[in-house]
Amino acid sequence: MFSTTRYLATAGALILLAAGCAGPSQTSSPVEPPGGTAAAGYPATIDNCGTQVTFEAAPERVVTIKSTATEMLLSLGLGSTIVGSAFADGPLPDAHADARIPVLSEQLPGTEATLALEPDLVYGGWESNFSAEGAGDRASLEALGVRTYVSPAACKAEGYKPDPLTFDSIFDDITEMGRIFGVEARADLVVSQEADKLAAITPDGSGLSALWYSSGEKTPYVGAGTGAPQLLMETVGLRNVAADIDDSWSAMSWEAVAAADPDVIVLVDAAWNTAQQKVDHLTANPATAKLRAVRESRYLTVPFAGGEAGVRSVDTARSLEDQLRLLDPLDP
Protein backbone atom coordinates (compact mmCIF):
# COMPACT_ATOMS: atom_id res chain seq x y z
CA MET A 1 0.00 0.00 0.00
CA PHE A 2 2.95 2.34 0.36
CA SER A 3 4.45 1.71 -3.02
CA THR A 4 6.28 4.65 -4.50
CA THR A 5 4.73 4.59 -7.93
CA ARG A 6 1.21 4.52 -6.65
CA TYR A 7 2.00 7.36 -4.35
CA LEU A 8 3.48 9.50 -7.08
CA ALA A 9 0.48 9.01 -9.30
CA THR A 10 -1.85 10.12 -6.55
CA ALA A 11 0.25 13.09 -5.62
CA GLY A 12 0.55 14.24 -9.19
CA ALA A 13 -3.18 14.01 -9.76
CA LEU A 14 -3.78 15.97 -6.62
CA ILE A 15 -1.46 18.73 -7.64
CA LEU A 16 -3.13 19.05 -11.02
CA LEU A 17 -6.48 19.18 -9.34
CA ALA A 18 -5.46 21.77 -6.83
CA ALA A 19 -3.68 24.02 -9.24
CA GLY A 20 -6.26 23.95 -12.00
CA CYS A 21 -3.58 24.75 -14.52
CA ALA A 22 -0.68 23.12 -16.21
CA GLY A 23 1.02 20.96 -13.64
CA PRO A 24 4.59 21.34 -12.61
CA SER A 25 7.18 18.82 -13.57
CA GLN A 26 6.46 15.46 -12.02
CA THR A 27 9.78 13.87 -12.68
CA SER A 28 12.38 13.76 -10.00
CA SER A 29 15.15 16.15 -10.72
CA PRO A 30 18.26 17.16 -8.83
CA VAL A 31 17.93 19.58 -5.95
CA GLU A 32 17.03 23.07 -7.06
CA PRO A 33 17.74 26.23 -5.12
CA PRO A 34 14.66 27.70 -3.39
CA GLY A 35 12.52 29.73 -5.72
CA GLY A 36 14.42 28.50 -8.74
CA THR A 37 11.46 27.69 -10.94
CA ALA A 38 8.82 29.46 -8.94
CA ALA A 39 7.11 32.04 -11.06
CA ALA A 40 5.27 29.59 -13.26
CA GLY A 41 3.10 28.05 -10.52
CA TYR A 42 1.69 31.27 -9.00
CA PRO A 43 -0.73 32.45 -7.77
CA ALA A 44 -1.33 29.17 -5.96
CA THR A 45 -4.43 28.71 -3.85
CA ILE A 46 -4.43 26.01 -1.22
CA ASP A 47 -7.26 24.72 0.93
CA ASN A 48 -5.57 24.36 4.32
CA CYS A 49 -7.79 22.92 7.10
CA GLY A 50 -10.71 24.70 5.42
CA THR A 51 -8.96 28.05 5.06
CA GLN A 52 -8.21 29.22 1.51
CA VAL A 53 -4.66 30.53 1.32
CA THR A 54 -3.36 32.14 -1.87
CA PHE A 55 0.35 32.47 -2.50
CA GLU A 56 1.36 35.11 -5.06
CA ALA A 57 4.96 34.03 -4.85
CA ALA A 58 7.16 31.70 -2.85
CA PRO A 59 7.31 32.87 0.80
CA GLU A 60 10.67 34.35 1.72
CA ARG A 61 10.26 35.20 5.40
CA VAL A 62 8.75 32.35 7.38
CA VAL A 63 8.02 31.97 11.08
CA THR A 64 7.79 28.27 11.99
CA ILE A 65 5.97 27.14 15.10
CA LYS A 66 6.66 23.64 16.45
CA SER A 67 9.30 21.19 15.29
CA THR A 68 7.29 19.62 12.47
CA ALA A 69 7.09 22.95 10.62
CA THR A 70 10.78 23.75 11.06
CA GLU A 71 11.90 20.27 10.03
CA MET A 72 9.66 20.25 6.97
CA LEU A 73 11.28 23.41 5.62
CA LEU A 74 14.77 22.20 6.48
CA SER A 75 14.27 18.94 4.58
CA LEU A 76 13.08 20.90 1.55
CA GLY A 77 16.26 22.97 1.68
CA LEU A 78 14.29 26.04 2.75
CA GLY A 79 16.10 26.72 6.03
CA SER A 80 17.26 30.12 4.78
CA THR A 81 13.65 31.33 4.53
CA ILE A 82 13.06 30.84 8.27
CA VAL A 83 13.31 34.20 10.04
CA GLY A 84 12.27 32.73 13.38
CA SER A 85 11.30 29.35 14.81
CA ALA A 86 9.28 28.91 17.98
CA PHE A 87 7.84 26.37 20.39
CA ALA A 88 10.26 23.61 19.41
CA ASP A 89 9.30 20.19 20.79
CA GLY A 90 12.92 19.17 21.15
CA PRO A 91 16.27 19.23 19.39
CA LEU A 92 16.45 18.92 15.60
CA PRO A 93 17.21 15.46 14.23
CA ASP A 94 20.85 14.67 13.39
CA ALA A 95 20.35 15.34 9.67
CA HIS A 96 19.78 19.03 10.43
CA ALA A 97 22.08 19.27 13.43
CA ASP A 98 24.19 22.02 11.88
CA ALA A 99 21.27 24.14 10.67
CA ARG A 100 21.42 27.70 12.00
CA ILE A 101 17.84 28.69 12.69
CA PRO A 102 17.03 31.93 14.54
CA VAL A 103 14.87 31.14 17.56
CA LEU A 104 11.92 33.44 18.15
CA SER A 105 10.76 31.90 21.43
CA GLU A 106 10.86 28.71 23.46
CA GLN A 107 7.10 28.80 23.80
CA LEU A 108 4.18 29.89 21.70
CA PRO A 109 5.02 33.46 20.60
CA GLY A 110 2.52 36.31 20.84
CA THR A 111 1.06 38.04 17.80
CA GLU A 112 3.18 41.16 18.07
CA ALA A 113 6.42 39.24 18.54
CA THR A 114 5.52 37.19 15.49
CA LEU A 115 4.65 40.20 13.36
CA ALA A 116 7.79 42.04 14.44
CA LEU A 117 9.77 39.64 12.27
CA GLU A 118 7.70 40.80 9.29
CA PRO A 119 7.02 37.28 8.05
CA ASP A 120 5.13 36.60 4.83
CA LEU A 121 4.17 33.16 6.11
CA VAL A 122 3.48 31.74 9.58
CA TYR A 123 3.68 27.96 9.44
CA GLY A 124 2.28 26.23 12.54
CA GLY A 125 2.31 22.61 13.60
CA TRP A 126 -1.01 22.85 15.48
CA GLU A 127 -4.20 24.79 14.71
CA SER A 128 -4.15 26.07 18.28
CA ASN A 129 -0.91 27.95 17.49
CA PHE A 130 -3.10 30.44 15.63
CA SER A 131 -5.00 31.85 18.58
CA ALA A 132 -5.38 35.50 19.46
CA GLU A 133 -3.11 34.91 22.50
CA GLY A 134 -0.69 32.99 20.31
CA ALA A 135 0.71 33.89 16.94
CA GLY A 136 -2.59 35.56 16.03
CA ASP A 137 -5.74 34.19 14.46
CA ARG A 138 -5.54 33.22 10.84
CA ALA A 139 -7.97 35.83 9.48
CA SER A 140 -6.20 38.72 11.23
CA LEU A 141 -2.79 37.62 10.01
CA GLU A 142 -4.16 37.23 6.48
CA ALA A 143 -5.63 40.74 6.68
CA LEU A 144 -2.14 42.00 7.49
CA GLY A 145 -0.79 40.30 4.42
CA VAL A 146 0.72 37.40 6.30
CA ARG A 147 -0.15 33.95 4.93
CA THR A 148 -0.81 31.14 7.39
CA TYR A 149 -0.42 27.42 7.07
CA VAL A 150 -1.12 24.55 9.51
CA SER A 151 0.37 21.08 9.14
CA PRO A 152 -2.62 19.33 7.52
CA ALA A 153 -2.22 16.25 9.77
CA ALA A 154 -3.16 18.54 12.67
CA CYS A 155 -6.43 19.77 11.09
CA LYS A 156 -9.37 19.30 13.43
CA ALA A 157 -12.31 20.11 11.16
CA GLU A 158 -14.53 17.37 9.79
CA GLY A 159 -13.39 16.47 6.29
CA TYR A 160 -9.86 17.72 6.98
CA LYS A 161 -8.80 15.82 10.08
CA PRO A 162 -6.86 12.58 9.46
CA ASP A 163 -9.39 9.78 9.16
CA PRO A 164 -7.16 7.93 9.74
CA LEU A 165 -3.74 9.41 9.04
CA THR A 166 -1.81 7.64 6.23
CA PHE A 167 1.69 7.98 4.88
CA ASP A 168 0.10 9.02 1.59
CA SER A 169 -1.38 12.06 3.28
CA ILE A 170 1.94 12.85 4.98
CA PHE A 171 3.67 12.66 1.58
CA ASP A 172 0.93 14.86 0.09
CA ASP A 173 1.76 17.45 2.73
CA ILE A 174 5.41 17.40 1.63
CA THR A 175 4.38 17.82 -1.98
CA GLU A 176 2.04 20.66 -1.09
CA MET A 177 4.80 22.44 0.77
CA GLY A 178 7.03 22.00 -2.29
CA ARG A 179 4.38 23.64 -4.39
CA ILE A 180 3.93 26.58 -1.98
CA PHE A 181 7.65 27.31 -2.16
CA GLY A 182 8.02 26.37 -5.83
CA VAL A 183 10.42 23.52 -5.03
CA GLU A 184 8.31 20.71 -6.41
CA ALA A 185 11.25 18.72 -7.64
CA ARG A 186 12.95 18.76 -4.26
CA ALA A 187 9.69 17.76 -2.61
CA ASP A 188 9.25 14.88 -5.03
CA LEU A 189 12.77 13.72 -4.27
CA VAL A 190 12.12 13.81 -0.52
CA VAL A 191 8.87 11.93 -1.00
CA SER A 192 10.47 9.22 -3.10
CA GLN A 193 13.34 8.81 -0.62
CA GLU A 194 10.90 8.54 2.31
CA ALA A 195 8.66 6.16 0.37
CA ASP A 196 11.65 3.93 -0.37
CA LYS A 197 12.64 3.85 3.30
CA LEU A 198 9.03 3.09 4.21
CA ALA A 199 8.84 0.24 1.76
CA ALA A 200 11.91 -1.29 3.37
CA ILE A 201 10.26 -1.57 6.77
CA THR A 202 9.27 -5.11 7.73
CA PRO A 203 6.39 -5.16 10.20
CA ASP A 204 6.81 -7.41 13.22
CA GLY A 205 4.72 -10.51 12.60
CA SER A 206 4.17 -11.74 16.13
CA GLY A 207 0.95 -9.81 16.74
CA LEU A 208 2.17 -7.71 19.66
CA SER A 209 -0.19 -5.25 21.30
CA ALA A 210 1.12 -1.85 22.33
CA LEU A 211 0.29 1.32 24.24
CA TRP A 212 1.53 4.70 23.01
CA TYR A 213 2.07 6.52 26.33
CA SER A 214 2.41 10.22 25.61
CA SER A 215 1.94 11.92 28.99
CA GLY A 216 -0.12 12.10 32.15
CA GLU A 217 0.26 10.27 35.42
CA LYS A 218 -3.24 10.31 36.85
CA THR A 219 -4.85 9.72 33.49
CA PRO A 220 -2.54 8.55 30.73
CA TYR A 221 -2.75 10.48 27.49
CA VAL A 222 -2.25 7.90 24.78
CA GLY A 223 -1.96 7.59 21.02
CA ALA A 224 -5.47 6.70 19.80
CA GLY A 225 -6.95 5.31 16.59
CA THR A 226 -6.52 7.95 13.89
CA GLY A 227 -3.27 9.85 14.29
CA ALA A 228 0.46 9.45 13.86
CA PRO A 229 0.86 7.01 16.79
CA GLN A 230 -1.67 4.64 15.23
CA LEU A 231 -0.01 4.89 11.82
CA LEU A 232 3.48 4.35 13.22
CA MET A 233 2.49 1.37 15.36
CA GLU A 234 0.56 -0.20 12.50
CA THR A 235 3.53 0.28 10.19
CA VAL A 236 5.85 -1.70 12.45
CA GLY A 237 3.25 -4.41 13.16
CA LEU A 238 2.06 -3.32 16.60
CA ARG A 239 -1.62 -3.51 17.52
CA ASN A 240 -2.66 -0.29 19.29
CA VAL A 241 -4.70 -1.06 22.44
CA ALA A 242 -6.40 2.33 22.03
CA ALA A 243 -7.20 1.81 18.34
CA ASP A 244 -10.94 1.93 18.99
CA ILE A 245 -10.85 5.52 20.20
CA ASP A 246 -11.70 7.79 17.28
CA ASP A 247 -9.11 10.49 17.83
CA SER A 248 -5.42 11.14 17.22
CA TRP A 249 -4.60 11.21 20.92
CA SER A 250 -6.89 10.64 23.87
CA ALA A 251 -7.08 10.24 27.60
CA MET A 252 -7.55 6.60 28.54
CA SER A 253 -8.22 5.15 31.96
CA TRP A 254 -5.47 3.15 33.68
CA GLU A 255 -8.03 0.44 34.21
CA ALA A 256 -8.66 0.13 30.48
CA VAL A 257 -4.90 0.03 29.94
CA ALA A 258 -4.51 -2.64 32.60
CA ALA A 259 -7.39 -4.65 31.15
CA ALA A 260 -5.69 -4.58 27.74
CA ASP A 261 -2.31 -5.45 29.33
CA PRO A 262 -0.20 -4.41 26.32
CA ASP A 263 2.91 -6.41 25.31
CA VAL A 264 4.90 -3.28 24.52
CA ILE A 265 4.74 0.32 25.68
CA VAL A 266 5.92 3.14 23.41
CA LEU A 267 7.18 5.99 25.60
CA VAL A 268 7.24 9.56 24.35
CA ASP A 269 10.41 11.28 25.47
CA ALA A 270 10.19 15.02 26.08
CA ALA A 271 12.48 17.30 28.04
CA TRP A 272 9.61 18.20 30.38
CA ASN A 273 8.43 14.62 30.74
CA THR A 274 11.12 12.13 29.95
CA ALA A 275 10.70 8.48 29.05
CA GLN A 276 12.54 7.62 32.25
CA GLN A 277 10.01 9.56 34.34
CA LYS A 278 7.28 7.51 32.72
CA VAL A 279 9.11 4.26 33.42
CA ASP A 280 9.54 5.35 37.03
CA HIS A 281 5.86 6.10 37.34
CA LEU A 282 4.83 2.83 35.70
CA THR A 283 7.08 0.87 38.04
CA ALA A 284 6.13 2.79 41.16
CA ASN A 285 2.38 2.49 40.75
CA PRO A 286 1.40 -0.93 42.12
CA ALA A 287 -1.30 -1.38 39.49
CA THR A 288 0.78 -0.57 36.40
CA ALA A 289 3.76 -2.43 37.84
CA LYS A 290 1.78 -5.62 37.22
CA LEU A 291 1.51 -4.92 33.48
CA ARG A 292 3.39 -7.39 31.30
CA ALA A 293 5.31 -4.70 29.40
CA VAL A 294 6.39 -3.11 32.68
CA ARG A 295 7.36 -6.37 34.36
CA GLU A 296 9.46 -7.32 31.33
CA SER A 297 10.68 -3.77 30.58
CA ARG A 298 9.41 -3.96 27.03
CA TYR A 299 9.64 -0.28 26.16
CA LEU A 300 10.21 1.59 22.90
CA THR A 301 11.11 5.29 22.97
CA VAL A 302 10.07 8.07 20.61
CA PRO A 303 11.16 11.71 20.88
CA PHE A 304 8.15 14.01 21.31
CA ALA A 305 8.63 15.63 17.89
CA GLY A 306 8.76 12.17 16.29
CA GLY A 307 5.25 11.44 17.48
CA GLU A 308 3.83 14.24 15.39
CA ALA A 309 3.02 13.52 11.76
CA GLY A 310 5.61 15.05 9.45
CA VAL A 311 8.67 14.66 7.35
CA ARG A 312 10.30 12.74 10.21
CA SER A 313 7.56 10.11 10.47
CA VAL A 314 9.21 7.42 8.34
CA ASP A 315 12.42 7.74 10.34
CA THR A 316 10.40 7.38 13.53
CA ALA A 317 8.81 4.22 12.16
CA ARG A 318 12.26 2.88 11.25
CA SER A 319 13.51 3.62 14.73
CA LEU A 320 10.55 1.76 16.23
CA GLU A 321 11.25 -1.17 13.91
CA ASP A 322 14.88 -1.29 15.08
CA GLN A 323 13.99 -1.02 18.77
CA LEU A 324 11.33 -3.69 18.41
CA ARG A 325 13.82 -6.09 16.86
CA LEU A 326 16.14 -5.62 19.83
CA LEU A 327 13.48 -6.55 22.40
CA ASP A 328 13.66 -10.03 23.86
CA PRO A 329 10.89 -12.32 22.78
CA LEU A 330 7.92 -12.41 25.15
CA ASP A 331 8.17 -14.73 28.12
CA PRO A 332 6.00 -17.71 27.54
Binding site: S215, G216, E217, A251, A270, W272, N273, F304
Partner: peptide, 16 residues
Protein backbone atom coordinates in the same frame (compact mmCIF):
# COMPACT_ATOMS: atom_id res chain seq x y z
CA UNK B 1 3.48 24.54 30.75
CA UNK B 2 5.44 22.90 28.02
CA UNK B 3 4.24 20.63 25.25
CA UNK B 4 1.29 18.68 26.57
CA UNK B 5 2.11 18.98 30.29
CA UNK B 6 -0.87 21.31 30.75
CA UNK B 7 -3.17 18.32 30.29
CA UNK B 8 -2.35 16.89 33.67
CA UNK B 9 -2.95 20.29 35.26
CA UNK B 10 -6.22 20.76 33.41
CA UNK B 11 -7.48 17.39 34.57
CA UNK B 12 -6.52 18.43 38.00
CA UNK B 13 -8.20 21.83 37.89
CA UNK B 14 -11.43 20.23 36.72
CA UNK B 15 -11.21 17.75 39.58
CA UNK B 16 -10.39 14.15 38.89
Amino acid sequence: SKGDSYREVLNWLLGS
